[in-house]
Design a protein around this nucleic acid. Structure first.
Lengths: 182, 182
DNA sequence: TCGTATTTTCAGTAATTTCTGAAACTACTG
DNA sequence: CAGTAGTTTCAGAAATTACTGAAAATACGA
């Protein structure tokens, strides 16, 4: 791996994390290299930086494109593809959240809804039925919240985050009697 | 797999998702079985439900315990271990978020901080340095927000979620001139 | 059109992860 | 203490996933 030691540590860490994030090692490393790079890089520069095969880089870049985590651009008079990550970290975070939601929660919501529509749902035992309904409601609550927040502009979102739990006090939410749940 | 068709679909789906959630198929399926079960189950009941080996179930339960996603209990006059999931879905969601944060973001924050403390950080190229600092700030912002929200009681949190982006309006956040970023 | 630079595909191999069955271990009971 | 019911460990088998190199495809320029 051909790069300064510090950057190398960064890249290796992202490789390890990549696996936990539903990608694989190489994909995580490619992302890390692009993230640190000042300029967009072409595939061969990534090959040189990571010391993996050209085809592996090609597949990794395809995967990152499917996550919409990298941008493809062309330079005049050069037919190579150049890749980069957005400058704006917020954009990166938003994309990551969007993609993970799409991959990890939306399919579950779809299945839960299908189960409830299926003909043998009513004949399922009451407890299982209730749990499926409850899970659906919970996921729908988070989905709606997320879709709502996605449209708030970044500046406001950032200040909302910084406010943290104080928001709850400012909004003056009064404690509701908690005798009406479970 | 020995259970009613509808529950079976649920379990199979959670098996598929389990993989995307950093567990594996069996672990996801075990969780799904416990989630739907009215009563705590012992390992052999899970074996019967899923048709996998006893040792696989043992390892899966260990994994779920390491995630703190299942509870272990004992019945008087019975030396078997019985496992269950919390009744309260909020508790499940909170645990999941807590664990994923611990596994997926905390280690990265640690590494980023280490890099900044390392002796060759100052000699790293300015752009990479800036990106590492920026990433650290972003993760710290989310971490603080999360730790803040974790302490808000569920009732209030639920209402905050239902409020969604309206919260931002209620709080009267004024648009800040966005000339001071990037 | 042919040649060249580049990217993609894909079959096979390597590496990793998951799963199993047998053995070891634990802790209770008679 | 020996026997039994239960759980865990672990070495190897099975399954899956990642990676490579070679070949095929693409796309431009002469």
């Amino acid at each position: 791996m051909d790069m300064p030691a510090l950057q190398q540590k960064f890249v290796i860490h992202f490789g390890e994390m990549g696996a936990r994030w539903g990608m694989n090692r190489t994909v995580g490393q490619i992302y890390a290299v692009l993230f640190l790079a000042e300029e967009p890089l072409c595939a061969d520069e990534i090959v040189a930086a990571l010391g993996v095969s050209r085809s592996n880089v090609s597949m990794g870049l395809k995967e990152l494109q499917s996550w919409q985590l990298v941008r493809l651009e062309h330079h005049p008079g050069d037919r190579r593809d150049f890749f980069s990550t957005p400058d704006d970290l917020w954009e990166i975070v938003m994309t990551l959240v969007e993609q993970r939601k799409a991959r990890e929660v939306d399919p579950t919501l779809t299945v839960l809804r299908e189960l409830q529509l299926s003909s043998d749902f009513d004949s399922t035992n009451a407890h299982a039925r209730a749990r499926i309904e409850e899970a659906t409601r919970m996921i729908e609550l988070f989905s709606r919240w997320y879709e709502d927040m996605r449209d708030v502009d970044i500046e406001k979102l950032e200040r909302l985050l910084k406010l943290g739990s104080a928001a709850q006090k400012v909004l003056g939410l009064k404690a509701r009697k908690n005798t009406d749940k479970h």
